[in-house]
């Protein structure tokens, strides 16, 4: 789609805002509607849009495959380690109360970290799924579609 000028310009303008909105949904999730799942998908949407307009190879330069493989488990690890932190600090698994001296602040902190982990994993997984399909060599002829 290299020659679709309008598309390229519009998406170049849009992508930063999509990312910003993703971050908003991510970090505002504990006060209003939002959270890691939604944010992750929005975040991934930005990268997918980029890949669609500028090509898969270009997108791979932004986030290499290796980074994705690293990011997927990273989010999960953040989640699980927060859970274990609860145990280590004397509470139960995923107990946010003990994360800080004040239980309310602990809850706040806990849910932020957890959602961050979720967001990272979801975004990385969505991009991986897209890449897994888009990156496949053409096996289907034009006529077949």
């Amino acid at each position: 789609m290299r020659h679709h000028l309008i598309l390229r310009v519009v998406s170049k303008m849009l992508i930063p805002f999509i990312l910003l909105f993703g971050l908003y949904v991510q970090f505002h999730g504990d006060f209003g509607p939002g959270g890691g799942f939604q944010a992750g998908v929005i975040f991934a949407a930005a990268f997918i849009l980029y890949a669609l307009v500028f090509g898969d190879d270009q997108a791979r330069k932004v986030i290499p495959d290796k980074a994705l493989i690293l990011l997927v488990p990273m989010g999960l690890l953040i989640y699980a380690l927060t859970g274990f932190a609860g145990i280590l600090l004397g509470g139960k698994f995923l107990d946010y109360d003990v994360l800080s001296s004040d239980p309310t602040q602990g809850q706040h902190l806990g849910i932020l970290v957890i959602e961050l982990g979720v967001g990272i994993t979801v975004a990385a997984v969505m991009i991986s799924i897209f890449r897994a399909y888009a990156g496949r060599t053409k096996a289907i002829d034009k006529e077949d579609w």
């Binding site: 290796k66 493989i69 690293l70 997927v72 488990p73 990273m74 999960l76 690890l77 699980a80 380690l81 859970g83 274990f84 145990i87 139960k92 698994f93």
Partner: peptide, 23 residues
């Protein structure tokens, strides 16, 4: 006291760690 959750959490956390062996 945490054995019940460790039963699930340990293999759960092991899965992402296992991915890291690709590197």
């Amino acid at each position: 006291p945490h054995l019940p959750v460790l039963q699930v959490a340990i293999p759960l956390i092991a899965a992402p760690i296992c991915v890291l062996f690709t590197f």
